[in-house]
Amino acid sequence: MPSCSWNQAGWHKAKDLQIPANISLLPLPPRSPELNPVENVWQYMRDNWLSNRVFTSYTNILDHCADAWKRLANQPWTIMSIGLRDWVYRS
């Protein structure tokens, strides 16, 4: 049975969420971003394309973020290596 994790943020606690019978939700402990692979994706984008910059406007920030996301989306193996967690797989 596939599992999915979430970080228990307030906006992730929808009362009307329909969870399929073949999916198990696994709540992550509070304040543990290292357990959430997407946090590492954002860190990778900051480290490689978004840090050490002066943004001129909100639109400029959005443009840079969109560009970083497109660059990363064109590197599926990088995304896989960033998000891979050996402990996720069960034998």
Rank of each mutant, 00 (worst) to 15 (best):
L28M: 08
R71L: 15
P20D: 01
K13N: 09
V54A: 12
Q43K: 12
F55I: 06
D16Y: 11
A9L: 12
P30I: 13
P76D: 07
Q18H: 12
T56W: 07
I19Y: 07
H64V: 02
K15E: 09
E34P: 01
C65T: 01
R53F: 09
I82A: 07
D67Q: 11
S91V: 14
P20F: 11
K15A: 15
S81H: 12
W42N: 02
M1Q: 04
R71T: 09
Q75R: 05
M45F: 07
V54S: 10
Q75N: 00
L35Q: 02
Y44K: 06
R90T: 09
N36R: 01
R85G: 04
R53Q: 13
P2I: 15
V88K: 11
Q75L: 15
W69K: 07
S91T: 10
Y58P: 05
N22C: 09
S91E: 10
S5P: 03
D67V: 02
D47Y: 11
P76A: 02
A66E: 12
L62W: 06
L17P: 05
L25P: 00
L72Q: 00
V41D: 01
M45Y: 06
V38W: 06
I61C: 14
W11G: 00
L35A: 02
D67M: 13
N48T: 06
S81Q: 14
I82Q: 07
V54G: 07
R85S: 09
P37F: 11
L84Q: 03
V38P: 05
